[in-house]
């Protein structure tokens, strides 16, 4: 019965949730905010409205969910890419600590940032 207490289901759920959130939202956010608008291909709402939008608590909460899950999506997938792609499964513990550690640090930073604005 001990075997069922493996951490993999949590990590896989975060990976899956992150993959889905990233699939649904990242292309449009990247395309509109970070490519098309700076190039002047499309016009965003006025800066004041953009600031109001960004400071909206619900938007901040949603954004936190998106980046938090994206970071853990990266951690999980990258960990397995290192295992299989470079055949490093003997470094299992080290790689897991590094990838999920970085994802945790990034998430905490994101949480602090999104908490403190507005």
């Amino acid at each position: 019965m001990r075997a069922r207490r493996s951490r993999e289901p949590i990590l896989w759920a975060l990976f899956g949730g992150g993959g889905m959130m990233a699939a649904l939202f990242l292309p449009v956010l990247l395309g509109v905010l970070l490519v098309a608008a700076p190039m002047g291909w499309i016009e965003l709402v006025a800066f004041a409205d953009l600031q109001v939008l960004v400071r909206n608590p619900l938007v901040r909460l949603g954004l936190f969910g998106l980046v938090f899950l994206s970071f853990f999506h990266w951690a999980h997938r990258f960990r397995y890419t290192l295992y299989d792609g470079l055949q490093l499964s003997h470094l299992n513990e080290l790689i897991a600590i590094l990838t999920y550690g970085v994802a945790t640090a990034l998430s905490l930073t994101a949480g602090y940032l999104l908490w403190s604005i507005g």
Binding site: M1, R4, S6, E8, N92
Partner: peptide
């Protein structure tokens, strides 16, 4: 079966 398969060497090894 889940006890055997819920290991890293079981389903979680698959990418």
């Amino acid at each position: 079966r889940m006890d055997v398969l819920s290991q890293h060497a079981g389903i979680w090894g698959c990418t």
